[in-house]
Design a protein around this nucleic acid. Structure first.
Lengths: 192, 192
DNA sequence: TACAAAAGTGCAACCACTACACTTTTGAAG
DNA sequence: CTTCAAAAGTGTAGTGGTTGCACTTTTGTA
């Protein structure tokens, strides 16, 4: 099934060496202080080749995206009986926010992205692309028609919630409050 | 109070002529098919001057932003007694979405922004900058501490809701559903 | 009237990104 | 093994937004 010829292997290899070079340099000196030329040089390819593998400078840092989406849809689709959709999403994000403590490089990466406006915007854009897929899964789960507004809204809000929570010091508590709001509504604890 | 000297008047005048030239050209031929040079020429200024008035090509289209924010904060702060914050926001957005039918140019403008990715992203970014201010007003209204997570979440979600609603054919109905979700929660009408 | 701040200018440059014409590599078919 | 076309990679020259710089012109004020 996964029979990759030499050609494909070499292609992936170049791609990886570019991404690796980019990661190293960005981590060391910041996103804005590293030019594409330098990355290409480090990866021993031409700038043209670099852009044949990646559509933009920002994209050099975000390679794996398919896994994230399937994981996201999975936790909704295969949540245990009795667990609400919002709870499933909450738990998923809390888990992800725990920050792979085994590999501290991940925290550095997050800090790089969060502190670089261009990267922050790009990452957010990528993340929000999952909105439609998530909305469809939610609609399927509750038997609503595709394109239902409430499902689209929940999908959008839940995805936004992740970024909202990430910026907070106490993420778990923040997740409880934000997803509590989504689950039970603003007027649940509030008088106005 | 508003005594503007000749200098300030001239400055505003050049600024306006730049913005006007940009609007005309963008409307006529689209955002991507008009260069800054051409805009500067049309406004009879140098490119350098153009960029001393506007930080980017996108910003040429978004001049007034202060009014929008104060209007937004106003509808929350000065909502009639008995009206919830979410309802006030809902009504405000529905009103704004009605699209100044008197001036059809506004609809063209909206279409230009919504169909140009760069502009859409920029406008969304601008819009979301109101989040902190809105969150603070909400917190003040319900007597919560500044920086309360639920208030920040409601602010964020409400702002996102506007864009969500704008894309729907029946905006009023969509507004009801989305803000109903925010007000009463996902589990209000849903079994899972 | 003189002077300093502010506005505007033109030029050169930077950087991400693209088009193009080209060479090299590689998989597969005869 | 040879042949051939597709695919990967290259260098160059460009575009377009954006900035830095040194400069002139305008304008409010002392």
């Amino acid at each position: 099934m996964t029979e990759l010829g030499r050609r494909e292997r070499k292609k992936l290899q170049t791609r990886r060496s570019i991404a690796d070079a980019a990661l190293d340099l960005f981590m060391a000196r910041g996103f804005d202080d590293v030019g594409v030329k330098e990355i290409a040089d480090r990866a021993d390819v031409s700038v043209t080749t670099l852009f044949k593998h990646f559509p933009s400078k920002e994209s050099l840092l975000f390679d794996e995206d398919e896994e994230q989406e399937s994981a996201l849809l999975g936790v909704v689709r295969e949540r245990p009986a009795g667990k609400s959709i919002t709870q499933a999403l909450r738990d998923h994000f809390v888990e992800a926010a725990k920050g792979h403590a085994d590999h501290p490089m991940f925290d550095d990466f997050q800090r790089l992205v969060r502190t670089t406006p261009a990267l922050r915007a790009y990452a957010h854009g990528m993340w929000m692309r999952h909105q439609d897929a998530l909305a469809r899964v939610i609609a399927a789960e509750i038997g609503a028609p595709d394109g239902d507004v409430r499902c689209a809204a929940l999908a959008r809000f839940a995805l936004e919630a992740r970024d909202l929570i990430f910026d907070r010091p106490d993420r778990e508590r923040a997740a409880d409050e934000v997803f509590g709001l989504l689950e039970h509504g603003w007027s649940a604890d509030q008088q106005s």
